[in-house]
Design a protein around this nucleic acid. Sequence first.
DNA 1: ATAGGGTTAG
Length: 661
Amino acid sequence: MEVFALSPPVPVFPSRHSSLSVAATTSLPAGARKNQRVIRVPASSGTDRYHISGSGASRSSQSSSLDVTKTDGKRNPATPVNSSRQDAVAEVIQSPDWVSALSRLETKLQVQDLNIILRFFGKSKRWQDVSQLFNWMQEREMTNIASYSSFMKYMGESRNLIRALHVYSSIEDESTRNNVSICNSLLGCMLKDRKFESCIKMFNQMKENGLVPDLFTYSILLAGCAKVEHGYSQALELVEELESRGLHMDNVIYGTLLAICASHNLCEEAERFFQQMNAEGLSPNLFHYSSLLNAYSVDGDHKKADEIVKSMKSAGLVPNKVILTTLLKVYVRGGLLERSRELLIDLENLGYAEDEIPFCLVMDNLAKKGDVREAKICLNLCLHVAADGYSYSIMISAFCRNGQLKEAKELAREYETIYDKYDLVMLNTLLRAYCNAGEMENVMQMLRKMDALKISPDWNTFQILVKYFLKEKLYHLAYQTVEDMHSKGHQVGEELCSSLILELGKSGAPSEAFSVYNMLRYSKTTPRKSIHEKMLNILIGAKLFKNAYVVMKDNAEDISAPSLDKFAFSFMQAGNINMINDVVKALHRCGRKIDEEVLHIAISRYIARPEKEELLLHLLKWMPGQGYTLNSSSRDLLLKNSHLFGQRQLIAEILAQRNQG
DNA sequence: ATAGGGTTAG
């Protein structure tokens, strides 16, 4: 179905060309826009606030990230404000050399003042200063619960879990270590670092040591559940636990639960929690509705989605950008292209399509349905809005899937000229486009870029590269890439491995071929049977008999008789003499009748090396029991050369026994 | 007086 090509000439971007005033008038303070809870400060305490800002004039309830505000409700209004402490804090914060300012003003400052400075550094993301100041405070024992709590939080933000854990374990006072705020902030810090399992372990440990968790604790832990595989069952356990402690779930905890259901594709469970929260008298907000919609989007359940939007509206809530975007996702996944087109236009008219997200939703779906042309039209619409480049990634992948290599390559180049921005997904996408199009120089450039940006390749990257190097007959490069891939713990695809083994064999790199073969053998997937025979023939051709023997011995049932015979002949002629008997026995064990000619070669090898007499005797003694006799030429050869052997008497006896039999 | 949580794109 053509959606955009035939769409009526509706003005797609009505506000875009008019003026910039729209943007100016709709710019709200970040806090208000994001629906955050704003803590209102009573007017009377206004004079008690420390307030550092560039202009010194702004005093609004919104706080920019660099504001330092403080309220102190306990202070008696009659007491004059201790301005010298305020000034000292301001001086330290504003000083280019805060360390020396701090030591100068040390006597004037109390712990809570230092905490203000600590939070200022934290909000400014000056992690080095946060760390340094905290050390300074610890050395002077000028810390309290709040200092630790704030410090942990900033260690989480700066991704320094190690330091946070170190500081936590260095807390000597037991009641401080069990303080719920400090524990909560450390647990949050661990989740920021995606250490969910360790976080739960730590939580259990803390409880054993005497922590009494509160609603915050459960809120933090539940948030972690949304991002892990078995998060839902873990979440249920936590809910049960918090209820058994007499705590009650609030609006936000329900929001988290709904998000967990949505991310684990559990619609019915989401509905149940939704009803439960209603029954408890909590009224759902936009977050709850959007999580429900998100759950419905997985299967594109537009009926339920429409219902929920209806009831949301009748509850007096106005759908926002996220709600409508999620609804778009529902329509797109549900295959309602006409309705998704209409909704996209609504989004545009409402000013909610100022970034590429809604376009990406539609585009990806069109592309995956195979309607690449429509998707491209959608990409062109995207070009008029603030785009991050995701749209390019979708479209380039679509061209690649569709075999439109030239288009993919051109779009990749276009992306690079517009954006100088790379992440792993984008690099993989571009790499695939250049590889498919055979643009070697660009491929190498992407690899250099990846290296320079210290972005480590993932399974996709390796897979793309190995395929490409194979196609370009750069077998050694392909081999090195596979080695690299293997050493990084990635499973190498069976098909690529097999063709690489063959090519390496053909191009005179049998050892490398064998190394790839071994990766395949010890990988989780069982390789197809034919690979063993191919490997065996490569090794025989390269005279790598020892390895050939290993392959033959372990996979004889998957190797054809001619190949086994070829192996037997070749090994007897040139294989390690010490292994001749083993090879003979192994071939016999797997049901091959050893050819007389093969035995003859073996015996001539032994005659040429009389010091291997023991092995010869062993073979001669073994043969009759398995039904093998020497042919006449072998016997003649032995008799003629028996003078070479110390135990010629014994050899003669064995030959004589045979004559009788 | 510190800790916290939920929604959309490759």
